[in-house]
Design a binder for these strands. Structure first.
Lengths: 222, 222
DNA sequence: TGTACATCAGTGAACGCGCGTTCACTGATGTAC
DNA sequence: TGTACATCAGTGAACGCGCGTTCACTGATGTAC
């Protein structure tokens, strides 16, 4: 009883699917998400358009897969960064190790750094997730879960931090102070990234990287 | 020597142009900027598509006009708000009148309030200016001027404020402290607006209006 | 006040393009006996 | 080990759609004498 997901045909299928996704990304990079076209991809691959329907049920299915894979990639990227920061803290600082944990601020910094690198390296990919929604297209429910997962490292870092502090709660926006901090970080970082990637700082004497770093600090030092 | 810009034909021209713009906006509102189509507009107006070429040289020219008019509308909106705030301050507070000016913070608050109302009332219009750029379309140079004009009330309010304060300059990002404050306000407000209009808070226990107000305060109280 | 003329709005047909998607089919490839 | 069969990748033609834009043309409307 051979595994149909591991035979040579399945392998080939996965190769072609990957190649389609690759061409799809370069198309999105060059002309935005609304320019995604199965026919154009088929052409670049030296195939006919109907052939792609063996691999993707429709254009929307391909787009959904791209969006989910982008979310997943970002989630894994920021998780790895936060984890690395937590481990290096545990190694170098005896004090915090003795305190039984890691430095939340370091993890948040690692998260923010990874996020910016990820966004700047592929602006259209970032904008696909956090920019203007594609008209007439509704993101699948899994996207919400992944979006939550991306925020998780930050939120738990802030939760650890909040637990160590006396709470005043003067400027709370919601019931959960860790959520509050996470949202505040999220909006501030996105405020810089969104305008930067859209090119709005191009005609101004503004250094987006420095601004980003400042906004990060503004939340951590609050 | 009759004025050709005031005859009945010119008047009619302007009416039709306005109607085209109106339909264009409702099209953008419903399906985003990339869905803007001269043929579809002509159809809704009960005309043939070529007829529209009497009024607009091309689709891109129409789009440019829409973008510029949106910038202009926003500029006038925030200018009016800031002016009203300055005047009402001058009336009610003798102290600040004696000090020869108005309350910068009030003007910035008025600006931010007007901005949010403007953005929320027509999300796609806001996103047309500050969201993901339309692929393959470059904004005209005038857009930059108008963008600067929109920021002007805030920047001058901050300039007035900075002049009254002792400067430490610890967290400067650029050479001009008023510019710094303006950019910080801009990115923080856009961070909230951009994510809100894209629907990213819909599945979270977050109140965008409260968050927006908090971010506004965070810059004013710095 | 009435007529001739120039101006200009709008039509209809057409061009060339690209899109997503369906369908009947050919031919290669892996698999079961 | 070799042959028969089922599976499946890919083709080519086609459908219907919408787009921007050009062009020769009709007919109404304003204007100059």
């Amino acid at each position: 009883m051979p595994d149909p997901t591991a035979g040579p045909r399945a392998r080939y299928r996965e190769q072609v699917r990957a190649e389609v996704r690759e061409h799809a990304w370069s198309q999105i990079t060059e002309a935005g998400a609304s320019a995604l076209s199965l026919k154009a991809i088929a052409q670049r691959m030296g195939m006919t358009a109907p052939a792609l329907y063996r691999y993707f049920a429709s254009r929307d299915e391909l787009l959904t897969e791209l969006i989910l894979s982008a979310y997943l990639d970002l989630a894994e990227t920021v998780e790895a960064a936060a984890r690395a920061a937590a481990e290096s803290t545990a190694e170098s600082t005896q004090e915090s190790t003795a305190a039984g944990g890691d430095d939340p601020a370091r993890q948040v910094r690692a998260f923010a750094g990874a996020l910016r690198t990820w966004a700047v390296s592929a602006p259209q990919r970032y904008l696909l997730l956090y920019g203007t929604p594609v008209p007439g297209y509704a993101a699948p429910p899994e996207a919400t879960d992944l979006a939550r997962r991306i925020a998780a490292p930050v939120q738990s870092a802030f939760a650890a931090r909040v637990a160590n502090e006396t709470q005043e709660g003067a400027s709370r926006t919601s019931a959960d102070p860790a959520l509050d901090l996470m949202v505040r970080l999220w909006t501030r970082l996105h405020g810089v990234l969104g305008l930067e990637l859209a090119g709005h700082f191009d005609t101004m004497p503004v250094d987006p990287a420095a601004l980003y770093a400042h906004e990060l600090d503004s939340v951590l030092d609050a």
